[in-house]
């Protein structure tokens, strides 16, 4: 064990003093591109469970914001009173470690299919969808000046161009993606004033305790833009998991969600605009799968999951064509 967590111990000592200790370290993930550690921070009689997330690999054309920016977004969102894990510190150059940050540990369930099954068993789908509507309405109304640093991101400037540029960068021609991008370009929705957009607002990125949404996780796609983007992504067919018949994250129909969203100050998109963002979501998800395949083929990040993502692009393309031809809603 000796040495494996020395970097973490040193980072803790720098910030909390040499008397602070780390205990009960658990490696949650150690993948090709990230390292997640759970640990207790012990200071005298006080003990807190914390999480360290570090990025061990970063592609030059990554669509994700840096860990430093993620930390900054979470710090601002936390300060505004929305439920995110309490940000503790961000690693810096003096740590000499991979980039990343430490937050409070939040217990609960993130697995989409388990959350859906629990919601179903407890008849809680509508109330959970309403909770998401409230959270998202509040999120989209946060003061923009706190998030100025995201304004120059490609996704903030023009989300559609951002997708097209990434897709073009992969050099693989996919006729369905071409068709999706062309359709999106021809049917652009009206301009909406910008708000903070989470960017990956879906089951899998919500911490759930019982039937309560207790934390919003994974801010690596945060940018500024239309709130309808987050709504469309949540409702995109791929993110309904086991329940494609329930548009809001496979939890419920749209009514309870949109009512709560409006109550919290959100601007409810009309049906055409909502559909546009779902088609955008499918196109974006197909492109993200293509990105994984490209990393695999280039050899920068190989593995069965990345290869499978590449082939799974076809599933998303099928859903996209079924939606564009009016067979799927």
């Amino acid at each position: 064990m000796a040495g494996r967590f020395d970097d973490l111990a040193a980072a803790i000592a720098r910030r909390f003093g040499s008397a602070a200790r780390i205990e009960n370290v658990e490696v949650a993930t150690l993948g090709g591109s990230n390292r997640t550690l759970l640990f207790d921070l012990v200071e005298g009689a006080s003990r807190r469970r914390l999480v360290s997330r570090q990025q061990t690999y970063l592609a030059g054309d990554s669509p994700f914001i840096s860990p430093e920016e993620q930390f900054r977004v979470m710090r601002e969102v936390y300060a505004c009173g929305l439920p995110v894990p309490e940000p503790i510190f961000v690693y810096d150059e003096a740590d000499g470690t991979d980039a990343g940050f430490v937050t409070a540990f939040v217990a609960g369930e993130t697995g989409p299919k388990r959350i859906q099954a629990d919601a179903d068993a407890n008849g809680a789908g509508e109330s959970m969808a309403a909770q998401l509507g409230t959270l998202l309405g509040r999120l989209h109304g946060l003061p923009l000046d706190r998030f100025d640093f995201l304004a120059s991101r490609a996704d903030s400037v023009d989300p559609l161009s951002a997708q097209r540029d990434r897709y073009d960068g992969y050099g693989e021609i996919r006729p369905v993606i071409e068709y999706g991008l062309h359709w999106l370009d021809r049917h652009r929705p009206p301009f909406r004033p910008s708000g903070l957009v989470h960017g990956d607002f879906r089951l899998g990125n919500f911490m759930v305790a019982g039937t309560a949404i207790t934390s919003l996780l994974d801010w690596e796609c945060a940018h500024l833009g239309s709130g309808a983007e987050d709504i469309g992504w949540l409702c995109t067919r791929s993110w309904r998991f086991a329940r494609p018949d329930l548009p809001v994250g496979g939890l419920a129909g749209t009514e309870p969600f949109l009512a709560a969203y409006a109550d919290a100050g959100g601007h409810v998109p009309d049906a055409d605009e909502h559909r546009w963002w779902q088609i955008f979501g499918l196109t974006r998800w197909a492109i993200l799968n293509l990105m994984q395949a490209e990393g695999h083929m280039r050899g920068t990040r190989r593995g069965p999951v990345y290869a499978a993502c590449g082939r799974n692009t076809a599933l998303v393309e099928y859903d996209l064509m079924m939606t564009l031809t009016g067979r799927y809603a």
Partner: peptide, 21 residues
């Protein structure tokens, strides 16, 4: 769009047939 859907069906039939309508 009809031809693109036909090709998508062919691809999904190989990748994961259960995913098809």
């Amino acid at each position: 769009s009809a031809a693109l859907l036909t090709d998508a069906i062919a691809a999904v039939a190989i990748t994961r047939p259960d995913h098809l309508h």
